[in-house]
Amino acid sequence: MNKAVLKAVLRKNKWFAGLSPSLADSIIRLGRVRNVDNSLIYSASDSRDGLVALISGQVRLTSFSLSGNPSFLLITSPGSWIGVTSALDGRPYGYDAFAIGKSVVFHLSQERLDALINESNEYYSAFVRMVCDHLRVSIQNLIVLRNRRPLHRLAQELWRLAERHGRPTKKGVVIDLRLSQEDLAVMIGVGRQTINRLLKSLEQDGIATAKYTSVTIHNLAAIERLSLSEAVDS
């Protein structure tokens, strides 16, 4: 892959875009591009193996409860980095990362990451900032999950998916990520019946239509308004 194209995708991430030119160039030089079509990148119990950034395609991050049901689901977008916590603390990943369809990732191996962060405190601090960024996002999502109404949580997730993965059509913005209703339910922390009711409500209002594995947003402005709503559960 052309270095300029690779760098342009990685710079979609605010963390990478804010790195010093020397560190950004070193990461690109030391990493390798891999095709990971429809394959497991790593499992929850795997030992650390450096950092991975999504270049194109889709990667699903999933964790499962003791009963085997999915308890967490996140769809990554191009430029996103995964595996950073394990790369720094040495513990297993804690969630599965699976590439859906044709996907390309950028892999910075653990050996090369360790050599890089040992070069200077500045480089090590940069990767610590990535962990801090991920932690802040996780806390913000937890606050939303605990306090906001399910409809607003769904709208926020649909807005995020439309912004990063949406495909404009005559009927609206299509989110075609092979997402089932069960997937959406896990993503916003509700049950199957609740997500079905919420999607029907959006369809009745002419805002969005859900099919087997895709969602079409007909009124993006309405989704945005719902996603920004401050109303909370009583």
Rank of each mutant, 00 (worst) to 15 (best):
C132N: 00
L113Q: 11
S67N: 12
I28E: 05
L19E: 08
V105Q: 01
L61K: 05
H107G: 03
P92H: 12
S77V: 08
E111S: 11
P70L: 05
N38W: 02
R29G: 03
I28R: 06
D46N: 09
S71Y: 14
V131Q: 04
N118L: 12
L30C: 07
A99F: 04
R29Q: 13
P21C: 06
I55L: 15
A53R: 02
V52M: 05
S20C: 10
A126W: 01
M130E: 07
Y42E: 00
G79V: 00
G68P: 05
R29W: 13
A53I: 02
G57E: 14
G79D: 04
D25K: 08
S71C: 13
E119M: 11
S22C: 09
S39A: 13
D37Q: 10
L51M: 09
R32S: 06
N38M: 01
L113N: 11
F72K: 14
P78I: 04
R112F: 08
F127A: 01
D89H: 14
Y93T: 03
D46C: 04
S20W: 08
A99M: 04
S120N: 10
R29E: 14
S86A: 15
S109L: 02
G68W: 01
E122C: 08
T85Q: 13
T62G: 03
V131E: 02
S67G: 12
I28Q: 07
L74K: 15
H107W: 06
Y123W: 03
S43N: 06
G90V: 14
R48G: 13
Y124P: 02
A44V: 00
G18S: 02
V59R: 03
F127K: 04
L73F: 10
S125T: 09
S71G: 11
S20N: 14
S45K: 09
R129P: 03
P70N: 00
S125R: 12
I82M: 14
I27V: 15
V59M: 06
A97W: 07
Y124V: 06
V33Y: 02
L40V: 08
D46Q: 06
A115R: 15
V131R: 05
S47R: 13
S120H: 12
S67H: 11
S26F: 00
L30Q: 13
S109V: 11
R91V: 14
F64W: 11
K102I: 13
K102W: 07
S47V: 12
N38I: 06
G18L: 05
V105I: 15
V33H: 00
L116P: 03
S109F: 01
S47T: 11
I28D: 03
I27L: 06
S47W: 10
I75A: 15
L61E: 07
F106P: 12
G18N: 02
P92W: 15
Q110F: 07
I41S: 04
D49P: 06
V131G: 00
R32A: 10
F72V: 10
Y124L: 14
V84S: 11
Q58Y: 05
G50N: 08
I100M: 08
L30P: 08
L61R: 07
D49K: 00
D133M: 08
F64M: 03
Y42M: 00
F106S: 02
T62E: 03
L51V: 02
E119R: 11
S56I: 05
S67F: 09
I28S: 06
H107N: 05
